[in-house]
Design a protein around this nucleic acid. Structure first.
Length: 369
RNA sequence: GCGCCAUUGGUGAAGGGGUUAACACGGCGGAUUGUGGUUCCGUUAUGCAUCGGUUCGAAUCCGAUAUGGCGCC
């Protein structure tokens, strides 16, 4: 079945709703941990679920290269392959054109994108149709349209051309898409330009996708630019479809997104920060590598209900990180994911009680980085 | 007792008279937003065993001392 969004309540523009999928219903606004290579790095699916997460995100580009979509297909699809029975969203590979090809050669043409494998340097060519075909074989619940993530500070002319091309790609992908069990989301681009965002949003909505993403944000631009890009895009999206702000995971940015009406977020931050020794706390991020935690025998956060905080001390986690022990990354990933998901739970509670803005202000006041 | 050789940060070390002592690891700090899974960036010896000397200038040359290694009586 296609995903179905049900709007339950609004508090300002913040929305409380439900997203029904083939693999269960999740309540929005919600946060999706990222499992690029068919795993949320360092965590078992059980551990991911214990954090309270619903949807996880995986990646077309990476699974295309390894192990190959046919192998995932033979395994019975991504859910079976990785033993995760919750909803899965797959990114289209569009972002990798931007992130992997930074400083490297890439060639964006009308037909698709030529670039080189990050694994063996092999020449690759990804098109909107191929991205759809791969995602079809991966059998995710939600597939994403193939887009170009426009680098910050691109000129108006470049942004306009790219945005129009992304629209043509969206159309081609939509036409190639033929899977009743899977949903397909369109992606709004338009860079930091108000008129291009509006144009991109309106044209994308015309194609009638199952949900809409706002892309091209949080890739190095200033925060106020990000917030404007959301504003320029989201007001043209339909109320009865889910809205997904791609790649955003800083707590304060999530709060701003929710305020503007975003339902879904994803980010590598909780897991990447974890592997590098950082933890989210209500007072802001802390770096467990700092010497001051050497003899700190208290949990990462005293009142946190995650497995790591209930059982381990900062001194121990610091020791694991220092020794490069993978359990350090696991414990911090559990904490960081739980932190964001707990925050989403509180956000939903606040929306339900018409005090979202108060919640946001209170959170922001305490959170200092 | 004599002779030869060595001695450079927490560690491994480069530099054999010319401005601020290479590099690496470690330490400390920072970064990280649709993940290229041990990444990136910054910082870390006002000093080259010690004390003198030569020189415009010494980690680099000379002498003594200390410590260590090897050899000889």
């Amino acid at each position: 079945m296609k995903v179905k969004y049900e709007l339950d309540k609004k508090d300002g523009n913040a929305r409380l709703g439900k997203l029904h999928t083939n693999h269960g219903t999740v309540i929005t606004p919600m946060f999706m941990p990222v499992g690029t290579c068919a795993t949320v790095k360092t965590l078992t699916p059980e551990q991911v679920k214990e954090c309270g997460s619903g949807v996880i995100l995986s990646n077309t580009y990476h699974l295309w290269l390894r192990p190959g979509e046919d192998i995932v297909d033979k395994a019975g699809g991504l859910h079976q392959f990785m033993n995760y029975d919750g909803p899965i969203l797959t990114d289209s590979g569009g972002f990798q054109v931007f992130s992997l090809a930074k400083n490297k050669k890439k060639d964006i043409v009308e037909e698709g994108v030529h670039f080189k494998s990050h694994i063996d340097g092999k020449k690759l060519f990804l098109t909107p149709e191929l991205s759809i075909e791969i995602q079809n074989k991966l059998d995710s619940d939600i597939a994403m349209s193939f887009d170009e993530c426009i680098p910050p500070n691109s000129t108006y002319e470049y942004t306009k051309n790219s945005t129009e091309r992304t629209l043509r790609w969206a159309k081609r992908g939509k036409e190639a898409f033929n899977n009743e069990k899977q949903s397909l989301f369109g992606i709004v681009q338009g860079g930091s330009f108000e008129d291009l965002r509006k144009y991109s949003a309106l044209e994308t909505v015309k194609m009638d996708f199952d949900g809409y993403a706002i892309g091209g944000v949080a890739i190095g631009e200033e925060k106020d630019v990000t917030y404007n890009m959301i504003d320029y895009s989201i007001k043209y999206l339909p109320e009865d479809k889910p809205r997904y702000l791609m790649g955003v995971g800083e707590p304060l940015d999530i709060l701003e997104g929710v305020k503007q009406g975003v339902d879904m977020f994803d980010c590598v931050l909780p897991t990447r920060l974890a592997r590098h020794g950082n933890a989210f706390t209500r007072e802001g991020k802390i770096n467990l590598k700092n010497a001051k935690f050497k003899e700190d025998f208290t949990p990462i956060e005293n009142d946190c209900d995650c497995y790591a905080c209930k059982n381990y001390t900062k001194a121990y986690v610091k020791h694991l990180i220092t020794c490069n022990e993978s359990l350090g990354g696991t414990l911090l990933s559990i904490h960081n994911i739980r932190f964001l998901i707990k925050m989403m739970e509180e956000i939903r509670e606040a929306i339900k009680e018409d005090r979202f803005i108060e919640y946001k202000e209170e959170f922001t006041k305490k959170y200092t980085n």
